[in-house]
Simulated scan of single mutants.
Amino acid sequence: MKHAKFVSFTAVGAQTAKKAAALLPDFLTERYARTVDPSLAGTQLSRFAQQAMVDCDLIVFVGAVGIAVRAVAPYLAGKAFDPAVLVIDEAGRFVIPILSGHLGGANALAERLADGLGAQAVITTATDARAAFAVDTWAAAHDCVVVDPENIKYVSGALLRGETVGLRSDFPVEGRLPAQVMLDGTPESGFCIGFDTEAASFAHTLHLVPQVVFLGVGCRKGTDEKTIEAAAQVALDTAGVPWEAVRGIASIDVKQNEPGLLHFCETHGLSLTVFSAETLQSVSGDFTPSDFVARTVGVDNVCERAAVCAAAGGALRCRKRAQNGVTVALAQRDWRADFDEKQLEDKKL
């Protein structure tokens, strides 16, 4: 679940923060009312901002824009790392995204909160103000990682100048392409959707990697994180899959408290999904059987079956690979580069 922190500075602002937080049931929310809660009287706003910039997906300041800007400015890390930051005036009349409008989803969250509060969202990003296609917004809405966010400016800049940008995709493309975006052209700037993050299809190439791969892992009890990491890296290299494409880790439920596996997931910021032996055995497909594994955990294969199960029946991209007591497999769920505008609007909401 995503994490949000609200901070307010007056009694009226605290009430607005309470109303706004209630509009985000899909977030774990914390509210800090600095002039209302005596326990916060001696705390520093700069320390709050420093911690929130690391911990949170969303920070909401209920107060003046200047306060928010001064609080977060020393801790900015870049487009790909900064959380969404919003400002709501204490009366709840305006909701203003000031950071990570596209990649962090601040613009969409501003519109969502404004709708719920009966307020006005104040969107200032150029592509939104001029109703141009925003490639980073599309990427965030379609579970794609932007590998080189510094190249967003070339694609967005070209679109704002009225130029055409290119699109190359290793995945099926569906829906009507946005204005000024073309397949198979040779514009100066463009974006590539796929796993090859080195492809230089355009003079200025932005790489989008769909997070559609699940890594199934089986391991001996007590296997350390580094051993699991090494086996996973071999599987990814073999399949030509970058880490950015990995959406989650899957295994059997008897491994749900395995320290090395949990540390491995934590290091990569990935969730661990576990399945019972019965569930894994029920998955249909052609898997690599092992009598030893069947006798040990009650299912003839863990890594391949877990990966496919997590990928909602997706195809195996890398079959079972065994290394130093670790087995790893990769499965890829079905995914399309969908440019249907209605679906994008639905995902924003």
Rank of each mutant, 00 (worst) to 15 (best):
A294H: 15
V246N: 09
V212T: 10
A131T: 15
L58H: 00
R47E: 13
A64V: 15
Q15C: 11
P83T: 10
Q211S: 07
I98A: 07
V213D: 09
R93K: 14
T124V: 07
L24R: 03
R47A: 14
V213Q: 05
V69M: 09
A315S: 14
L103E: 14
D196T: 03
A158M: 05
V155T: 07
P187C: 07
F171M: 06
V308R: 05
D55I: 01
P97N: 10
V283K: 04
I228Q: 06
K79S: 09
A126K: 04
T16K: 07
C144G: 14
V85P: 03
G240M: 11
A232Y: 05
G222I: 01
L86V: 01
T16V: 08
A311Q: 06
A77K: 02
A200D: 13
F27W: 00
S46P: 15
I193D: 11
P289L: 12
E111N: 09
C303L: 11
I88A: 04
G101H: 05
C265H: 06
Q180E: 09
T227V: 03
T10M: 00
V135D: 08
Q332R: 09
F264T: 07
V72I: 14
L24F: 00
F264P: 09
E244S: 14
Q343L: 14
A306V: 08
T238V: 04
K153N: 12
G185Y: 04
A141G: 15
K153Q: 13
D338F: 02
I67H: 12
K342Y: 12
T127H: 10
I123S: 03
G175Q: 04
D55Q: 04
L23H: 00
A277Y: 03
V135E: 05
V122C: 06
V217Q: 05
L86Y: 02
L208D: 06
A131N: 15
R295I: 14
L159E: 04
V209H: 12
A337Q: 07
D115H: 13
G314I: 02
L113M: 05
V12I: 10
A132N: 05
Y32F: 01
I59C: 04
W243K: 03
E258C: 06
T197I: 15
V254Y: 02
R317V: 13
F264R: 09
K18Q: 00
T137R: 14
V212L: 06
G13F: 04
R220M: 10
F214W: 15
V7H: 00
V87K: 00
V213E: 06
P210V: 06
A329C: 05
A322N: 13
G222V: 03
G285L: 14
V241G: 02
A77T: 04
C318E: 11
C192I: 12
P97R: 08
D334S: 13
A158L: 07
T273G: 12
R47Y: 11
F27E: 00
D334P: 08
A245R: 12
R34K: 14
L167T: 13
